[in-house]
Nucleic acid binder design. Sequence first.
DNA 1: CATGAATGAGCTTTCATTCAT
DNA 2: TATGAATGAAAGCTCATTCAT
Lengths: 217, 217, 217, 217
Amino acid sequence: MPRTTNNSYDRANKRTFKIRSAAYELITEIPFADITMTMIAERAQVAKGTIFNYFKNKEDIFMAICINGYLHYIERMEAAIEQAQITTKSDLKEFLLAQTRLQVREYSVVILITSLRRFSLEVHADREQTLQGRVRIYATLDRIANKLVQAVPDVDVEAVRHAFIIQGSILNGLLNFANMNIFNNIECPIEMPSVTVDIEVEATHLFGIYLDDILKM
Amino acid sequence: MPRTTNNSYDRANKRTFKIRSAAYELITEIPFADITMTMIAERAQVAKGTIFNYFKNKEDIFMAICINGYLHYIERMEAAIEQAQITTKSDLKEFLLAQTRLQVREYSVVILITSLRRFSLEVHADREQTLQGRVRIYATLDRIANKLVQAVPDVDVEAVRHAFIIQGSILNGLLNFANMNIFNNIECPIEMPSVTVDIEVEATHLFGIYLDDILKM
Amino acid sequence: MPRTTNNSYDRANKRTFKIRSAAYELITEIPFADITMTMIAERAQVAKGTIFNYFKNKEDIFMAICINGYLHYIERMEAAIEQAQITTKSDLKEFLLAQTRLQVREYSVVILITSLRRFSLEVHADREQTLQGRVRIYATLDRIANKLVQAVPDVDVEAVRHAFIIQGSILNGLLNFANMNIFNNIECPIEMPSVTVDIEVEATHLFGIYLDDILKM
Amino acid sequence: MPRTTNNSYDRANKRTFKIRSAAYELITEIPFADITMTMIAERAQVAKGTIFNYFKNKEDIFMAICINGYLHYIERMEAAIEQAQITTKSDLKEFLLAQTRLQVREYSVVILITSLRRFSLEVHADREQTLQGRVRIYATLDRIANKLVQAVPDVDVEAVRHAFIIQGSILNGLLNFANMNIFNNIECPIEMPSVTVDIEVEATHLFGIYLDDILKM
DNA sequence: CATGAATGAGCTTTCATTCAT
DNA sequence: TATGAATGAAAGCTCATTCAT
């Protein structure tokens, strides 16, 4: 079967990817407010004007990162279900905690950027595009939840879907609120135990007991 | 002992309060990036230059709001302990959940602003001032935790102090990550159950099971 | 004699016409500075790049509109002479006033665009093209003037040719300078009689007494 | 009597004047569209940002030039009435023609800029400011007209006020529409008599016969 | 000849910050 | 200490123009 490639579509896809990647890289290095379109253009090796052919503005780029990043995460999760051999509630819990560890390790930036949505991103990002993305996310989460409840008896779809929101909230909250002993990535010479938090440990702990509760284990 | 009032000190205090209040009001109306020093000055009814006598920059103001707002919350909590008549773990849990409801209802904005700390505030805010504030917060939380463990047997100070971090993280995370069906304060015409969240219900639920866990109830 | 139609020539003509028409439409809706090549391309249903095959730049398009529009007007006038049955000075005056009414009613936009020539059009438009157009205009006016003086005794060709310049100047001037009670097409709630002007009445009045003068009536 | 000078008011006035003057100079050298705010700032020796403290945008500056320039002209005219010793219709006509010569010689640029009002200035200039200016103009013209009709019997105020509109229209029209043998300030090597116009001669001629008509001379 | 994605110079405008008063 | 006019760096963004397809 011959593969029909739409060249211009492919090129456009590549460009948006390059721009998003450049912006993603920068947010790991520089505070959001200090990132400029010029920086993003330089990093992505495209002209500044090109960015505006693909994104409405800076906020739009980061909103796209949020959505695509999270989609990437949950699509991987969906694929992982097959290999996971989940049959009991315990399997399910283990699976979701493993996914949480993955989220902490590889998707913290994406989850963290979500913090900007209320104060910055939503105000300027493209409404339609964003909502479409969210619908895709919801549909994927829905599929995942359905697959999981089919594999494990006596579990509510609604509860599983909801758990993903809680999972993200927990990680986002810990990233923002914990570790107040760190200022601008530099640890402070002040002893404040119990403020310091190992995000992975804490996230899996909190989400673990949440799962226990909703799975009635 | 007669209290010597220093007039200029009082006036300065009033000014910082006016400026902070103006900024607080604005953040409930306008996205952070769109708030200008001119707006804050007008709202606070001071000259733009005056602001810079009291705050290093815009980020400094909002960092101060974070810290003072949270201090305000926990100082009220400290005062509330006396009236609360806490003697059992169950009392303790109820007290902390009541405090959580208060946090949701009256301090959501303060908790939400914390989302900006990593990406904006810390980068420009005054380091020393901020750390001093955090130390004050820690000291207050420490006093509170101690008072509580003295009232209730068999509870770890460390665990209680830590619980406050988790409490804030939960609220912050839910505010940021939940309710993705809302875009720019406008609800979307897309049905996505389990994404929609009643913050107060969810926060008390999650924090409740966390307390059950750490209090071993 | 059979006319050999050159297809590509016809197509090119059609294109320039489509582009000019699109630009003409736009200038009746949007201020010159706010009209973009993209808008013109969309309206003309051609690619942006195509425009540049036919016109040097934006100013060139509007210069072409000026020249072609005015040519259109005077070529119609030339054709109208035959039907007009002009034999006396009075006939001539009536003919020219009727033509002035036509100019006001159907060519105001063209005359108005001329206002841009000094400040915008000439600076960027194609010099040779423009001058060629003006020579064509002059030639046509010359033919018209000659036809008219042949029909009416005791009238100077030079004076008639010159009258057309005055005619255009009067209309252009009134369009620009009169009706200062209107701002951005919206009438102002300020009573300023004698500022308000019925362009057609005023133009024919002023041009009428001018004709009386040069025709020594 | 001590003169009370409001320093900040004076300084502001000086600034607006400097900025307007710079813009006026530039428009005599460079086409409107090519004048940038940077150029104006440099010429006026103020910071770019300063301009925006006094004017909304580029169009606003040129609208102010139009209005202030014309006001300057008619205020001089008002002052000139006293010295003029006007008692007859003939005196009145001579006075107005002399004023027209002055307009041609010293205010052509101002009158010419008016050509931009429809296509550029009004769309972006400050509405209120502009209308206020026009009201001032109208009031001055009204005073002038009244003074003149008091001096000369049997002349209609309305007609005189209206004549000023016609005067400006004539000059504006001639500046825009005549001399099509000149392209971009360079005369063309094409012989087109009757297109070439001596603006001053033509304007006084046309306005002269208009005055004859309305004064019934 | 038609296309439209890519370009990037350069625009207007903003706004934190300064500093003379 | 309060002021707010002045600053000017730098931002976001536009859009005429190019050019590979």
